[in-house]
Design a protein around this nucleic acid. Structure first.
Lengths: 205, 205
DNA sequence: TCCTCAGGTTAGCGCTCGTTAACCGATTTC
DNA sequence: GAAATCGGTTAACGAGCGCTAACCTGAGGA
């Protein structure tokens, strides 16, 4: 074989195209022949790299969830030890920024992430769900440090809602969203505002 | 045949179960036999009520989009002529309230609405997209009355983002969300806060 | 030079799915 | 009372799917 880099490139190439196709037409709506064609090989050639179509989806979803969680943890750790005092607000800002980067740069993955979870084998789905849950809990902790008046259940609901807000970019998608930076700034401000209003409402009640 | 009411009840029963199943396992993931079984008839019996599986999805999606748009227009008209001056803020509140009601009461439909649009025939998809666009524009107008400092493109992005926020309820779903009223209040506050922060960010820039 | 083997190919199998065909009982209509 | 029709049934067809089998090629290593 060629170098290890080439081999993993081919695998990653397959995953990337599969993600795009799954996001566009749904897991069941895409055939293995199409995925193969998208990377220049045909149909069953994919089975030299993956044990089956399900495995591609599983690897994609586990990968996404893992990346989000790892990135989130890294940001919490970094922002926590940052010299400029920062405080919990800065940590939350960093989490939001990381999620926005992901949502804007890996649209198909974000789409897959909350559309096709149910197509997974039980064990894989459990794994993904667990990673998702840990990611949510990471956010909940940070949000409650910033807004102590928020109890845990509404904080969790608020985090889910903000995920929905941040993940909306694939929907408005294609051509006519403002430039990337402006969109990121807008979404960031909206997320912070949404959390603040949630806390305010909780305090008032 | 029995009364007209019975006939339309059967049709609606089919649509309701189809919506649930499509939302749970995706359009391609559900067979006509399962839909039939869910209403007590079997497989091909459905073809006495619909010309095909696609037609069920189309009717569901067109129906949802139409309902949202009609309800939104009604609310704008009502809140506009309301005796207690109200103002644009009240109109926006009414829109948000209506959307939240829909998201909380018709979860499967909301799920379908932004997952399975691409499975439609071109003509149906165009129709749904047009209804969705009009609904968005309705919101954009109202939002810009409340927050004049928001230009049109960011306002449109903000509306999409708030839809993502409000439609997040199916995700956190099943068991452990607070009671309905509390969730509605929380989401409402977050939506208003998100818009306000979007406007604030736009004014600052 | 020969062997191994990674990474492809095409043919085809078996299954599932949407849909149609043919038939049937009950209820309404003339 | 006959006829039509509504709403259902079962059988079966044809297409498309994921996947396997069998084969092939070209590059490295002994």
């Amino acid at each position: 074989m060629a170098t290890r880099t080439d081999a993993s490139t081919r695998r990653e190439q397959i995953l990337k195209e599969a993600a795009r196709l799954f996001a566009e037409r749904g897991f069941h709506g895409v055939g293995v022949d199409e995925i193969g064609a998208a990377v220049g090989i045909s149909g069953p050639g994919l089975y030299r790299h993956f044990p089956g179509k399900d495995a591609m989806l599983a690897e994609l979803l586990v990968g996404i969830s893992g990346q989000l969680l790892t990135g989130g943890r890294r940001r919490v750790a970094e922002a926590g030890t940052e010299s400029r005092g920062g405080g919990p607000g800065a940590v939350l800002d960093s989490l939001i920024e990381g999620h926005i980067d992901f949502a804007l740069d890996d649209r198909p993955l974000i789409t897959l992430h909350d559309r096709e979870l149910d197509r997974l084998r039980d064990s894989d789905r459990k794994m993904v769900r667990q990673l998702q849950r840990q990611y949510v809990e990471l956010w909940v902790e940070v949000v409650r440090e910033v807004h102590p008046e928020l109890a845990e259940p509404p904080a969790r609901a608020a985090v889910h809602a903000v995920f929905g807000l941040l993940n909306s970019t694939p929907h408005l998608s294609r051509p006519r969203l403002p430039n990337r930076a402006a969109t990121a700034t807008l979404l960031h401000a909206m997320a912070r505002g949404a959390f603040a209003s949630a806390a305010e409402a909780a305090a008032r009640a």
